[in-house]
Computed example of a mutant assay.
Amino acid sequence: MKEPVPPPGREKDDSLEDLDLPLLQAVALQVSVLAIALFTRLLDVLVLCVRPWLLRPYLGIWLAEWMHSPYRPRRTFEVTRVLRESGQGFRELIYGETPLFTAVRLFRRAGVGRGSRVVDVGAGRGRVLLAARWLGAEARGVELLVDHVASVAGQLRPAGITLTVGDATREELGDASHVFSNWTALGPETKARLVERFRACRPGTRFIVVTRPIEGRGFVTLSTHRMLFTWGFETVWVQEYRPEPV
């Protein structure tokens, strides 16, 4: 018995369906990312209702993200130049951000509170630092991109947050009680340089790192947590620096 002959043009339709599949997947991914972004923004605002004095700088950061993106074509050259001078790669800028409510939960579990001094290395526009202030801690961040700092530093200052331009691998961290780093976004060479910088911290300094722990002698894992970020769920490691006796 002969196989039924497909109608004219059917073979072409099947190939088009195959070509449309990656496009549909890309659209679905974009929709899910947008949904997560809106959901995290809503939760952030609800958390800030408890500390309304932090709402204005938070909204200022949000506006700056739209008005001063470093990824627009006219700014790409400057971004590339800065990264090359610091020895870092462009991949270290393309990740999402840590929602405020996630940072508050993480910092609480890491023991952040009044009297703590939190430093965010690679702070972006300082959203994580708002979580430190929410808990009553001192907050300081260092960021490589001038645009990030210039667009929000003035709005963060009244909230008690210091955000400066600088290379995290050369930042002075001796006064920190807690150091936050989005370890996801860093290349191997940058991580190695940061670990050497972290060894200058005082014994007992705690580190909150995303996705991977700090690998090296003296960095002891206290706990791990599964948390929501703007790109999805990630594991976060809370570690403490305990240098071995000489």
Rank of each mutant, 00 (worst) to 15 (best):
C49W: 02
R105F: 06
V118P: 08
L23I: 08
T40Q: 10
L21D: 08
A110R: 01
L93P: 00
V121F: 13
V112F: 01
R91A: 14
H68A: 13
T80L: 13
W53C: 10
S32V: 06
A110C: 01
V50F: 06
W62E: 15
L130F: 10
L23D: 04
R10P: 00
Q30E: 07
G60C: 10
G87F: 05
E11W: 11
T40W: 00
L16N: 12
T102A: 10
G115K: 10
V82Q: 12
F90I: 15
S116G: 07
L54A: 03
V5M: 11
E11A: 15
G9N: 14
R127E: 02
V119C: 04
L38V: 09
L55G: 04
W66M: 13
L55C: 09
L19R: 09
E78V: 05
R114N: 02
R56P: 01
E17M: 06
P70V: 03
L129P: 10
Y95K: 11
L42T: 05
R72E: 08
R72V: 15
G126D: 01
P70Q: 02
M67W: 08
L38A: 13
E97H: 14
G124A: 07
F39S: 12
L46K: 05
A132T: 10
S116N: 06
D13Q: 13
W53F: 08
G113T: 01
Y58T: 09
Y58G: 10
P70W: 02
Y58N: 07
E85H: 00
T98G: 02
G122W: 03
L23R: 08
P52I: 06
V79H: 02
L54M: 03
A64I: 04
L55H: 02
R108H: 04
V27K: 09
P7Q: 12
A26Q: 05
S15V: 14
L106R: 05
V47D: 06
R74M: 07
Y95A: 15
G111L: 03
L106D: 04
E65G: 11
R10I: 05
E85Y: 01
V31Q: 08
R51T: 03
R105Q: 07
R133Q: 03
R114K: 11
Y71W: 15
E97I: 09
L100V: 03
W53S: 15
F39H: 14
R10E: 11
G89L: 15
S86W: 04
W134Y: 15
P52Y: 14
D120Y: 05
L38I: 06
R109M: 12
L100M: 01
A26G: 13
F107E: 01
G124T: 04
R10N: 00
A28K: 12
V47T: 11
W53V: 09
R51F: 04
G111I: 04
A132H: 07
V82M: 03
W66F: 14
Y95R: 15
G113F: 00
G113Y: 01
